[in-house]
Write a protein that binds this DNA or RNA. Structure first.
Lengths: 119, 119
DNA sequence: CTGGATCCCCATCGATACTG
DNA sequence: CAGTATCGATGGGGATCCAG
């Protein structure tokens, strides 16, 4: 779609990371411990089953996440980060950090505004 | 919306960066040189006027981008990265880099698949 | 427990036309 | 040149139900 390759790389990278829940799913999986479907659901209180499934499939497709099925009743499926997925770790950490300071900054600005308004 | 603060930070960070065109706009502005509206349009061949305007406004709102109006005829408006916006530079660079290798990886895999299919 | 199948909404984006 | 206004299309995501 984009002719300029410089732009494509961004788009590609972001497509892998973006999606309403992907970064959060990755964040939790990057903690290292494999997580079951319902464990992830608990960690993402507001996600729907459907969305969790869809996003996990996409991450699996990109080989960022590994899906292991234990053939038993009741079913057990564990999701874990792949080695390749680990390469995203520094980026996500940085994003997380930046987001934190950005929130602080916004909060600070808000406080200043409220203060000057009452002058 | 999200109760878990850990998740909010991601969401916040990504909201600032994400949007179909934001990372690309930021990328170009991070080159350092202030750019006029139409210069940006030329750099983003497929973007519409409307989208460019909207995204620039959002970036301005987040104080990542600075808008300078030169009161003259014909109008001249220059957009440039703010110092605060510069703090995103390493993250965007990393994303860009990761995206590049990700594209390569996909391409490689595709080639391998095509090869084994013809066996 | 995991997750497929359906239906539907609405936010986002595109196209087009108009303006100081 | 640098936008704004309007309208319409599209698809990501939510809710719900069903199934191995």
């Amino acid at each position: 779609m984009q002719k300029n390759p410089v732009q494509c790389q961004f788009v590609t990278a972001l497509d892998s990371i973006v999606g309403k829940w992907k970064p959060i799913i990755l964040y939790h999986l990057l903690q290292g411990k494999p997580l079951r479907f319902n464990e992830l659901r608990r960690l993402l209180p507001d996600i729907t089953q459907r969305m969790l499934t869809l996003h996990l499939r996409e991450l699996e497709e990109e080989e960022l996440v590994k899906r292991v099925i234990y053939p038993q009743i009741p079913p057990k499926v564990e999701y874990s980060i792949t080695e390749y997925g680990m390469s995203l770790s520094p980026i996500l950490k940085a994003l997380h950090q930046w987001g934190a300071t950005h929130v602080e900054r916004k909060q600070l600005k808000k406080e200043i505004n409220e203060q000057t308004e009452t002058d």
